[in-house]
Design a protein around this nucleic acid. Structure first.
Lengths: 242, 242
DNA sequence: CGCTGGATTGACTCGGATCAAGTCGAGTGG
DNA sequence: CCACTCGACTTGATCCGAGTCAATCCAGCG
């Protein structure tokens, strides 16, 4: 008995049988959610914690001029708003990118889980810290990398994160996310994203079609991206290019 | 008896006398550090937690091509690496921007502080969460704002954060940070930063000279920046432009 | 008093946005 | 089965914001 949350957290620290069972129980009542649905809206008071079990979602904010900026992708196993619940209100929204299965865990239940299971507490803290490190990595990307390197960096990150939680079969992953959404996460236009992607395709580094990303040359991709995987704080097997 | 750390944390939650005393004791042994000194280096194993009491520092990373990106500013009261200590190694460095007074608190002491004083635990968590929210705000800035808005946004953020911790006398703050450093935090060149700053000066919105930032027209600055202060998760008195 | 690093200004270049047509594929309905 | 529609994606032409290169100014300091 397992699920994607257990698989992700197990990567951070060893979980006892009781802890795995508790996590599975907590995520038992999951709901199907349609694509493009706001799970949480900016300004909301903190409610339950949402865990994505299948499908993808993203954090975003719409600016006054109508532009959208995406700040994080939530892949299966990721949580929407763990500790943010301590704050008064959400400063951003979370939306599904495709049809998704999402579990809602009441805040009280999370508090109890953390109090009773040190392994879960530790794993959630580590997950939170790597999320924060990922935000810093994105800032670096947007500030100092060319759009080519940015696109390569994003695809590289998503692939390695997927590998770390068993979401990849080895050479790619399901990525049911439109180029428009990917572009909005990199601060560029969909038009230019498409052009840059073609360069990567022409260089035989990756292919991205109909919701599926395939890595043809990981070493080349890492090289183009200038990818330094230390911010993931996990060792990715086989990602040294060998 | 108080200091800048106490002043900052008191803004998040009420601290008992005992908690204030404990914080002051923990930050008692502070050291003067010269400008441009790495307090923590990328790759370091986690050591003590550093608290900036006077002066400024910043988180940064140098890329392969030699470019530097700054990801956060630490003003008096801010901590360098609270929970990052759980991780294996630092994924970025922290450097002083000017001469600074910094306290080093052994990790064990922090653990004890948090265990014994719920108020401190709560305040540190909230500080951590707003740091994370600030990272997201920076991503939005870099992705979707013009350089003019970016510069305005940064100055606005720094001013409001300073106000929230009593670092501002009302219309400005000590900002002993070169334009080069500010530019590296916004992903732009010092040359262009200087030009943009001149526009803000010409518009009589701010002045920035010799380590001192003065806000001439906060409402105008907020307007240019498109500043949405909800990510600070604190109410800034008088910052509604009135 | 000259050195040094930050700040400013000008001239030129270029990466990526913008505007504008398409093309392609998945549904949908007749 | 085909026509129609709608969104995502692609490609081309043009424009502009910001980078680059370079000269100069200025203040602090040994």
């Amino acid at each position: 008995m397992t699920n994607q949350l257990v698989r992700k957290l197990s990567g951070f620290t060893d979980l006892s049988e009781a802890e795995v069972a508790a996590l599975c129980h907590a995520t038992g009542r999951a709901r199907e959610i349609r694509a493009r649905h706001d799970i949480i809206r900016e300004g909301d008071k903190p409610g339950p914690v949402f865990v994505v079990l299948e499908g993808w979602a993203f954090r975003y904010k719409i600016l006054a001029d109508g532009n959208r900026q995406i700040m994080a992708f939530l892949m299966p196993g990721d949580c929407s708003n763990l500790n943010i619940g301590m704050l008064d209100e959400m400063d951003h929204s979370v939306q599904t990118a495709c049809r998704a299965r999402v579990a809602a865990i009441p805040r009280a239940e999370i508090t109890a889980l953390v109090a009773d299971h040190p392994g879960i507490a530790r794993a959630l803290s580590l997950a939170q810290l790597t999320d924060e490190a990922t935000l810093r990595a994105w800032i670096i990307c947007m500030g100092r990398r060319s759009t080519l390197a940015r696109v390569a960096h994003l695809l590289c990150e998503l692939y390695l994160r997927a590998r770390l939680t068993g979401l990849s079969d080895g050479h790619g992953l399901e990525l049911p996310v439109s180029q428009i959404v990917l572009a909005d996460s990199l601060g560029m236009t969909p038009v230019h994203f498409s052009r840059v992607l073609r360069k990567l395709r022409d260089a035989k580094v990756v292919t991205l079609t109909r919701g599926s990303l395939t890595i043809l040359d990981l070493e080349g991709l890492i090289d183009i991206a200038g990818f330094d995987q230390n911010y993931l704080h996990r060792v990715v097997p086989g990602s040294d290019g060998s």
